[in-house]
């Protein structure tokens, strides 16, 4: 399988505090890679380094074949990103948000139109195209934000707690969208606090106190730790944490 993300001892220090310590892992094309950990374990830090938002302190990493130190602008052409904070413009309409993000990624006017129609019909939001994003319910906003992060057909999409605060039905729909994207060859790198979502991932890594404590498929992890579900796996690992929030 083609490798699209690889890190080697990737580390981020903030003064004396080591937010992410010697992270080494690889993610293959089309994989759904879950990134788990308690609050403050270093998940977001790791993700921000890979997206070119945060300068690593040491170690190596490449994303979509480009170096995170020197080729961040090339990385940015090939990734989509959905942050913890909602990142669409609430004072623009649904269609205007799609148009803006598609436009700044360099899509042609005809592509923008095609993509907008395609995306809206996939989400079943044709009727909402002219509504301000601020008027949408949270679940819809999150689905829209995810779809917008894919508008330029990136090779990898980074999702930072995309389903926080979303109801179970919408979460399920959200994961349908993730599967759909992964099936079309997009690599999905996702952080989450929901253990049922961890079960949906091809592989998960669990971070504890800035280091990767475990990395395998959910099935293997459960077997290794003799746990009935991912919740128990997570609990066994996370309670060893010394760092408080």
């Amino acid at each position: 399988m083609e490798t699209v993300i690889s890190t080697d001892k990737l580390t981020k220090r903030f003064g004396d505090f080591i937010a992410a310590h010697e992270l080494s892992f690889e993610v293959g094309k089309g994989e759904i890679f879950g990134f788990l950990g308690a609050n403050g374990a270093g998940k977001t830090t790791a993700m921000r380094m890979l997206c070119g938002l945060l300068m690593p302190s040491s170690g190596k990493a490449s994303v979509a074949g480009f170096d995170v130190y020197t080729e961040t602008e090339k990385i940015k052409r090939n990734i989509g990103y959905m942050s913890q904070k909602f990142s669409l413009y609430e004072d623009l309409t649904v269609a205007e948000n799609i148009r803006f993000y598609a436009g700044i990624y360099g899509l042609s006017f005809s592509d923008i139109k095609r993509k907008t129609d395609e995306l809206l019909s996939k989400l079943g939001m044709q009727g909402e195209a002219k509504k301000l994003v601020s008027a949408l319910p949270l679940g819809w906003k999150q689905k829209l934000a995810f779809s917008v992060s894919l508008v330029h057909e990136p090779r990898i999409v980074f999702l930072d707690e995309p389903t926080g605060g979303v109801d179970p039905v919408t979460r399920r729909q959200f994961w349908d969208l993730i599967y759909y994207a992964a099936n079309s060859g997009v690599t999905v790198f996702v952080t989450t606090h929901y253990m049922d979502e961890a079960e949906y991932c091809d592989r998960v890594s669990i971070m504890v106190d800035g280091v990767i404590a475990a990395l395998d498929s959910p099935g293997n992890l459960k077997k290794q730790m003799n746990a009935p579900d991912m919740e128990d796996v997570f609990y066994q690992l996370a309670r060893k944490a010394k760092r408080s929030e």
Binding site: C51, G52, L53, E73, K76, R77, I79, Y81, S83, Q84, K85, F86, S87, L88, Y89, E90, Y101, I104, Y105, G106
Partner: peptide, 13 residues
């Protein structure tokens, strides 16, 4: 403040 700048920062803009 609303965090959209981060979204802009991950684009090639």
């Amino acid at each position: 403040e609303i965090g959209t700048i981060e979204q802009i920062n991950v684009t090639p803009v």
